[in-house]
Amino acid sequence: MAASAQAAATRGSLNRSSISPGRRLRNALATVLIYVALTFALVPLGFVLWYVLSKGLGVVDAAFLTEELPAQVRRARGGIGPAIAGTLVITGFATLLSVPLGILAAVYLHEYGGSNPVAGLVRFLSNVMAGVPSIVMGLFIFTVFVLRRGQGGLSGLAGGLALACLMLPIVIRSTEAMLRLVPNELREAAYALGTSKSRTILTVVLPAALPGITSGALLAVARAAGETAPLLFTIGASRQYNWSLGGPNAALSTQIFSNAQAGFPAAIDRAWGAALTLIVLVLGLSTVARLVAARLTVR
């Protein structure tokens, strides 16, 4: 009898009801607060995406996507064709410049440098560079490139250089992380076959890490395509299509900025349309990046 009572008491103390009301309340409160935090991030995001979709879809049509920019922001009509072209040209150039450079730099850091002081310094500095505000990159290219070339300096080339500075540390960091995942046995197997180190890197290590490197690079491209600040003082202004790197150009992000700042109803409409276009472009890129990464982890 006494034994069973003790057992019941033991069972009781393990029961949920034995937790004092105060402790239970605090636990419930914390859980509620966590859900509040979640709502804080999700509700505004939902609002932003809903606005972009509902306002943007009313504006975007074939003419909007292909026509030239309007002569005055306050006027209705006019498209964003040149801005799409400019974003593609500028981001494309930045990618061609920063991705190979970043991959090579990461190859040095991981395959040659390892933990030597040079690699340590470069790793440290690329962390510093990743923290440099994007507007400072714009000022930098303005001072070293645009100022030296006068008015002709304002170009897609200058904008691409600024975006490349922004992308470089991101590419270096993600590529080095991917190289770290390549098993050492692969390198040793290649050396055992008498392959030189550079050949091993080019034909064994990089191909093995390629999906991860690609997805990291695409995320950097997506980030750069949405950036506004580095382009503000570097690309100049153009209403017409400019598929070349020389001469003034336009970009989606700077178009959204200037139209939003102008504040006229027609300009705000155009900004929503451009925002929808830019988001589709950026999310498309990051989705591709994620698919590539997923393909990697499945194998």
Partner: peptide, 28 residues
């Protein structure tokens, strides 16, 4: 020789970070 060239090339690529950061500070 190709090995050395490749190593130097990748070293140069990683040193661009140093050069660019220095240029940013100096030129601005």
């Amino acid at each position: 020789r190709a090995d050395d060239a490749f190593r130097l090339l990748s070293l140069a690529a990683s040193l661009t970070v140093l050069v660019v950061l220095g240029l940013i500070a100096w030129s601005t």
